[in-house]
Design a binder for these strands. Structure first.
Length: 419
RNA sequence: GGAGGGGUGGCAGAGCGGUUGAAUGCACUGGUCUUGAAAACCAGAGUCCGUGAAAGCGGAUCGCGGGUUCGAAUCCCGCCCCCUCCGCCA
């Protein structure tokens, strides 16, 4: 949610920032401004009359106490009451329209968000097997069981079996341990949430066709634990001295992938359910940019220790999503596809989510202030497994695994798939 | 799933439909007193919106949203949450 006061104070700056997301977005802003003016006018009229009504009402109360006849006053007040109601109705109507429209406006992009295209910031590590290697499905064999997964649940579902199941748990345990060392509190959140949590994080209205809905209970399956982590402090006024607050969520993630038909259909690159360790930070407004770089640095540290070649991309304004002001993706080199593909993503959502979720902090000034939130992928398990398999593959089909995982229960290496 | 009870300020806890934004206690912040502290006494504190340069002024807020009424923390309806008992259950 954008700051209405900022819109009033500096509409031109907001308009030109929004214009980077497209002309129709900037047009909505003008309607917001008009509705706001209408609302303020109606509100002021309603509140003025309401003040009179209250004063008169107190006179009636006093009169009754003293045993005076207040019949005439009451008749007059009945008329006032009707007017107050009508004016209040007008104000509420304008406010309703205003809020509805305001909810559809995306966050203001950061001046340094890329435009018009994604910008590759750096390439780290050597992209191996540029001529193509085996892909993760060939390498995994029945350790990734798509056929039986499909028989059970349909397309884009898989069983992870044997060593890969253990490898997944090792990755998760390793990541959570590492993040804890970086000051993140490990959290296992609910994955079924109310609509409010999705509005609060900006996934609604925006990505409705991605989200599983359980109508019998009116609950939604989250596509990322970001939804639950952001809401952990919803409605709270935090002590600024406690900030930053950092959480590492581990959860399954569910995505309908409607509209992605035919895309990335092979293997577990794009599936309906996967596990993910997610970082989430609550920070003071002026600490947001540094925190974003920090999250990116942790993501790079993780990929580095996993010995995966990658590149860092500053995502273009059109691909930011509603809540992000700026977003970095890290794309790992996948020999099986012969290209870099998204493995992690970190967004600075500034005050956009915090305002919707009413998360504030009280600092030196004593005034509660909307804080800033950021999120970033630590380990998207499925895609990380793909990258580990494809980059670790040897000519004989066996797979070398990074040393850091062994201490967390991962096999030292994976034998070639039986064919 | 069935049957009850309840949600009031940071906490505890009052509140016949009419100066109740809300008693009282604790906690908190200033001040007086004191060498200092404690105690005591006095005063002040929430949040949100509008207006204003500011002081201030006005409105909203007793889980949330509607309704009744000249007037609602108090009455009615819907929703959310918490608790107790029974049933079921990893």
């Amino acid at each position: 949610m954008l700051d209405l006061r900022l819109i009033r104070r500096d509409p031109d700056a907001v308009r030109s920032a929004l214009a980077r997301r497209g002309p129709q977005v900037a047009d909505s802003l003008d309607r917001v401004i008009a509705l706001d003016a209408r609302w303020r006018e109606a509100t002021q009229a309603a509140e003025g009359l309401r003040a009179e009504q209250k004063a008169a009402s107190e006179r009636v109360a006093a009169g009754k106490r003293e045993g005076r006849d207040v019949g005439g006053e009451l008749d007059r007040l009945k008329l006032v009451s009707g007017e107050v109601k009508a004016l209040g109705e007008q104000a509420r109507g304008a406010d309703g329209e205003l809020q509805e429209l305001l909810r559809t406006l995306p966050n203001l992009p950061d001046p340094t968000a890329a435009e018009p295209d994604d910008e590759v910031l750096r390439i780290v590590g050597e992209a191996t097997r540029r001529d193509g290697g085996r892909d993760h499905l060939e390498l995994a064999g029945e350790r990734i069981d798509m056929e039986r997964g499909a028989r059970l649940s349909g397309a884009r579902f898989a069983y992870l079996r044997g060593d890969l199941a253990m490898l997944e748990l090792a990755l998760v345990q390793w990541a959570l341990t590492k993040l804890r060392g970086h000051g993140f509190e490990p959290v296992i959140p609910p994955v079924l949430v109310r609509e409010q949590a999705l509005y609060g994080t900006g996934f609604l209205p925006d990505t409705e066709q991605q989200i599983y809905h359980l109508p019998a209970d009116d609950l939604y399956l989250v596509g990322t634990s970001e939804v639950a982590l952001a809401s952990i402090h919803a409605g709270e006024i935090l002590d600024a001295a406690q900030l930053p607050l950092r959480y590492a969520g581990f959860s399954p993630c569910f995505r309908r992938e409607a509209g992605a038909a035919g895309r990335d259909t092979r293997g577990i690159f794009r599936v309906h359910q996967f596990d993910k360790v997610e970082m989430f930070s609550f920070v003071e407004p002026d600490a947001g940019k540094d925190e974003h770089e920090r999250l990116l640095a942790i993501e790079e540290e993780i990929l580095g220790e996993l010995e995966l070649p990658y590149r860092v991309v500053n995502i273009a304004v059109d691909d930011l999503g509603a809540s992000a002001a700026k977003k970095y993706d890290i794309e790992a080199w996948l020999p099986g596809q012969g290209r870099y593909r998204e493995l992690t993503s970190t967004s600075n959502t500034t005050d956009f989510q915090a305002r919707r979720l009413e998360i504030r902090a009280r600092g030196e000034s004593g005034k509660p202030e909307i804080l800033h939130t950021l999120n970033g992928t630590a380990v998207a398990v499925g895609r990380t497994l793909i990258a580990l398999l494809e980059n670790g593959q040897r000519d004989d089909g066996s797979i070398a695994l990074p040393a850091v995982l062994a201490a967390f229960g991962a096999p030292a290496e994976l034998p070639a798939a039986v064919t």
